[in-house]
């Protein structure tokens, strides 16, 4: 049996674990630059995580096992997703474990438990966060599925590796459907990863926070795991977008040189993804909760237009 694919699999997970904080750090640095502040450097998230891991855990008196189990589950789902999304190579032994729909569902189970953990302590904030998070998720889901539908039309597959290979081996054509799906995907990714204009990861103001409200009671290693997992989630959504829409550079074999090239391409593309994210985040303001129906409605509209233009125009 060939061990190389397995090795790449392990390598991918390691890259995910180690590079996700750097990616978040890069986004923060860019944001500081764009707002004229001095930054704490790309490596600040590592220091944050190290600090949190070394601290003791303080649990609320009535926290149940769900509260303690959730960080591990959220972390586990993110790591598993890292083994499935083709970051370096499309030739992954685990790639067939899950197609895009299963990947979305993996994030959904992490969200389900986070929302439960938010309600576990019985504070008003936790419940508020859970309620809002689940509302936003349920509005984002139809748009996400429609985007997946549109992407699967061209590649005739919902498996990410197959999608990437279809783009890599096909002729470069200007496809309106893919362009629409990409736009929709960006909007959904903003909602799913809790970025501006849907949620603000930097705020702890009670009226605006959503994800932070759910995890407000966490501390120590639990908080570290959750933070790490949410960094990985951002990284994974960037990787997901890259694999589906711009897989150029991702290796289709498991030879050493293409994988090395894929690593370099990945770094470059993630750098660009960070710039795009910061441009969006600086350009937009956080939306009111009930304006989000329009935001996610637009995502749905774009994805649907993609589907329609595939049938009408292509």
């Amino acid at each position: 049996m060939n061990v190389y694919p397995l090795l790449i699999e392990v390598l991918q997970v390691l890259i995910l674990l180690s590079a996700a904080p750097a990616f978040v750090g890069w986004v923060r640095v860019l944001k500081c630059w764009s707002q004229g502040r001095s930054s704490a450097g790309v490596f600040q998230p590592y220091r944050d995580l190290a600090k949190l891991f070394s601290k003791d855990v303080v649990l609320a008196e009535n926290a149940s096992w769900i509260f303690r189990f959730t960080p591990y589950l959220v972390f586990g789902a993110a790591v598993l997703a890292g083994g499935i999304i083709p970051i370096l190579s499309t030739d992954l032994p685990l790639a067939a474990t899950a197609d895009v729909i299963v990947l979305v569902a993996l994030f959904a189970i992490a969200r389900f438990f986070t929302a439960l953990a938010g309600m576990d302590i019985g504070t008003a904030f936790g419940g508020m966060g859970s309620s809002r998070e689940m509302t936003i998720a349920s509005l984002a889901e139809p748009a996400m599925l429609m985007a997946i539908f549109t992407m699967s039309l061209a590649s005739r597959s919902t498996s990410l590796s197959q999608m990437a290979q279809a783009v890599l081996s096909g002729q470069p054509v200007l496809r309106p459907s893919i362009a629409f799906a990409l736009l929709a995907f960006v909007l959904i990714a903003l909602a799913e990863t809790g970025r501006i204009p849907v949620d603000n990861p930097a705020t702890h103001l009670e009226l605006t926070m959503i994800h932070e409200a759910m995890i407000l009671e966490y501390s120590g290693r639990h908080l570290a795991l959750i933070e790490w997992a949410s960094m990985m989630k951002l990284f994974l959504f960037a990787a997901l977008g890259i694999a589906a829409f711009a897989p150029w550079g991702i290796s289709t074999t498991d030879a050493f040189l293409p994988v090395l090239a894929a690593f370099i391409f990945m770094t470059l593309k993630l750098g660009v993804a960070g710039v795009v994210l910061v441009l969006i985040e600086t350009g937009l303001a956080k939306m009111r909760l009930f304006r989000l129906t329009e935001f996610l409605g637009s995502a749905f509209l774009l994805a649907t237009l993609g589907m329609l233009s595939y049938f009408i125009l292509e």
Binding site: L174, P176, A179, S309, L313
Partner: peptide, 8 residues
């Protein structure tokens, strides 16, 4: 192709 894209 370009025309389709413009239509979109």
């Amino acid at each position: 192709n370009i025309n389709s894209f413009l239509a979109a």
